[in-house]
Amino acid sequence: MDRDMPLSASRRIYEAILGSSTTARGSESVPMPDWVGGGSRDARCGYTVVCNEREQTLGGLIREAFCNKANDIGVGGALGC
């Protein structure tokens, strides 16, 4: 599906119920070395993954970035973008 096309009603309902991404969060108490005062500190991390993302290749990402810039300055059509 083209990213500029509006979502169908069923897809909007599906995403409202199940979401379009998932996030994992973790925390852990980690020991600190003596040269920074010792003891322990809480370390936290979060990671988000987008669901059902369209497959992309490195070449496609480079072309998309290039064409976006070319279109911004008005020469995209002449370059096949």
Rank of each mutant, 00 (worst) to 15 (best):
M5T: 07
L7T: 03
A70E: 03
C67D: 02
Y14A: 14
D2G: 07
N71I: 13
T22C: 02
D4G: 12
G59N: 04
R3H: 00
D2C: 03
S27F: 09
A43N: 08
D42L: 15
M1Q: 14
N68Q: 13
R63L: 06
T57K: 12
L18T: 00
M32W: 10
S8E: 10
A16W: 11
G76F: 13
D72P: 01
V49S: 00
F66A: 15
S40N: 13
R3E: 01
V50Q: 13
D72L: 07
R41V: 12
R54T: 07
R11E: 09
P31R: 13
P31L: 13
R25Y: 06
N71V: 10
S29P: 01
I13P: 09
D72I: 02
A43G: 03
D2I: 03
A24V: 14
N52P: 05
M1R: 14
I62N: 08
S29N: 01
A9W: 10
S29L: 07
G39D: 05
Y14D: 12
I62V: 15
G46R: 14
M1A: 15
T48L: 11
K69C: 09
R44T: 05
P6H: 02
L7Y: 06
C45I: 15
R12M: 04
E53G: 12
C81V: 00
A16S: 14
E53I: 08
G38M: 02
I73M: 00
R3K: 06
P31E: 12
R25E: 10
V75G: 01
C51Y: 01
D72V: 04
G74D: 04
D42E: 14
L79D: 06
N52K: 11
R41P: 09
A78P: 01
P6Q: 05
R41F: 09
D72Q: 09
E55W: 13
S27I: 01
E64A: 02
M5C: 07
G46S: 15
V50H: 14
A78D: 07
N68C: 10
L18H: 00
I73L: 04
D42P: 08
T23A: 09
K69M: 07
I13N: 11
M32A: 15
K69I: 14
T48H: 04
G37E: 14
V75A: 07
